[in-house]
Nucleic acid binder design. Structure first.
Length: 418
RNA sequence: GUGGGUGUAGCUCAGCUGGUAGAGCACUAGGUUGUGGUCCUGGUGGUCGCGGGUUCAAGCCCCGUCACUCACCCCA
């Protein structure tokens, strides 16, 4: 038996970086006033089809979609934003307070061909803000993300930002783009020839050489923004500059989901081969209304948790190694019973303690204590029990002292707790 | 979805033109009849991814399949 393709186990020896990221991220989000939200893994297919866009790759061919026993179309979530927007609307959160700031983490599912940094079940850390149109909300999120990566010690990252405009300015831009591409149609790749009908913006994102060539001198969204979008993007850029957050304005950054408006950005890494995006976000001012809620501006980002951890592993960013305060070596049945009780008592007091119940030799138990990274070992053998004096060995200094059994736990507490 | 590479012990890998499997690490026991991280000695452990075929004989050749991996695509 084995996991199905693109799915994997994350084993205990690899989990500490995940925990480090969660701890650091959640503390930062909380301090900026974000609240955790937990949402289902399974939703009606319709939710994603409507929000992400019928013609996107995700919806067209990557979703795990199946009917349940009553024939309802269900889908394992390929991303979180749609569900969070659904939740915002369903619970009428806008009524009590339209401004809501969320964070969450959890698995997402997309049926793509797996490779490094790309799994069919993968994890995202999501942050979303509803109800704020101001460009400072955009900057705050970019800053937050940047700061988190800095705290985690990441290097080799670059932030790419762009503005996609809004329903006001987009039609004019699309026309300009189509006019420009008119004479160059034959240069486009097969994919882009199709996109020109469905979603011409996406052509900007194409990496094939011929399309790149066709796009030389092509109009950029940022040169066709309406005054409101232009002001918005200007505030984003100038504020980031003032804060010293480095970024690149990337005219070809389009992003694959239909709901994005105005600011879009991606954080790219150089250490992960082709899977270069470790985080991506954008504004989606039309989504809440599209899903049946009141017109509500919103913006958010998602971090690729798996990719983030892989980058950290490549950069050899260490997390704290787990250590053990005390390992009790118990030789013989009598000692074992006592050791078990002491261990429970010490753990209740917050002293990390382990006992090995297999009845091994002293030597092998010392080896185990070493492997478990124990700072101290308490040796309880027949001699010690008879004399009512146990040996406490400091594994770092090799110093050994005797401790009376009568007052064992309190005595150990004072020595080990400091 | 398309194309390339890989798949031998828990891990990293060796295995000559086909002749019925090997190392290092890890694990384990002992050297020290009660003291770890170094050292020495022994031991456990392999359906050679899986299924089929060719052959007297297949880890090695052929076909299929599964998984991993890299690129395209797309994205986190």
């Amino acid at each position: 038996m084995q996991t199905i393709r693109g799915f994997r186990d994350i084993l205990p020896e690899h989990i500490s970086l995940w925990q480090k990221v969660e701890k650091e991220a959640f503390a930062l989000f909380e301090s900026f006033g974000f609240k955790e939200i937990r949402i289902p893994v399974l939703e009606k297919t319709e939710l994603f089809a409507r929000s992400i866009g019928e013609t996107t790759d995700i919806v067209e061919k990557e979703m795990y979609t199946f009917p349940d026993s009553k024939g309802n179309g269900l889908t394992l979530r390929p991303e979180a934003t749609a569900s969070i927007a659904r939740s915002y609307i369903q619970h009428k959160m806008y009524a009590a307070d339209p401004v809501r700031k969320f964070y969450m983490t959890g698995p997402m599912f997309r049926r793509e061909r797996p490779q490094k940094g790309r799994y069919r079940q993968f994890y995202q850390i999501d942050v979303e803000v509803f109800g704020v149109e101001s460009a400072y909300a955009d900057v705050e999120l970019i800053f937050l993300l940047n700061d988190l990566f800095k705290r985690l010690g990441l290097t080799g990252l670059s932030a790419h930002i762009n503005s996609l405009g809004c329903p006001e300015c987009r039609p004019a831009f699309q026309k300009a783009l189509l006019d420009f591409l008119g004479e160059r149609k034959d240069l486009l790749c097969e994919n882009c020839a199709r996109r020109i009908q469905k979603n011409p913006l996406r052509i900007l994102d194409c990496k094939t050489a011929s399309c790149q060539k066709a796009l030389e001198g092509a109009p950029a969204t940022i040169n066709h923004l309406c005054p409101a979008c232009d002001d918005h993007f200007t505030i984003v850029r100038t504020t980031l500059e003032k804060q010293g957050v480095e970024f690149i304005v990337d005219k070809s950054l389009v992003r694959g989901l239909d709901y994005y408006t105005r600011t879009a950005w991606e954080i790219k890494t150089t250490t992960l081969g082709a899977q270069s995006a470790v985080a991506g976000g954008g504004r989606y001012d039309g989504l809440v209304k599209e899903l049946g809620g009141p017109a509500t501006p919103a913006i958010g980002f998602a971090i690729g948790f798996d990719r983030l951890v892989e980058v950290m592993e490549q950069l050899e960013i260490e997390s704290i190694k787990p250590t053990l305060d005390l390992f009790i070596v118990a030789l013989g049945d009598q000692a074992m019973e006592k050791a078990y009780q002491w261990s429970c008592e010490l753990n209740q007091q917050g002293v990390r303690t382990e006992v090995d119940f297999r009845g091994k030799s002293l030597k092998s138990l010392m080896k185990r204590a070493n492997k478990l990274n124990a700072n101290h070992v308490l040796i309880a053998g027949e001699d010690e029990l008879n004399k009512n004096q146990l040996i406490l060995r400091n594994m770092n200094t090799k110093d050994q002292t005797f401790i009376a059994i009568d007052n064992l736990v309190p005595e150990l507490m004072t020595i080990l707790k400091k």
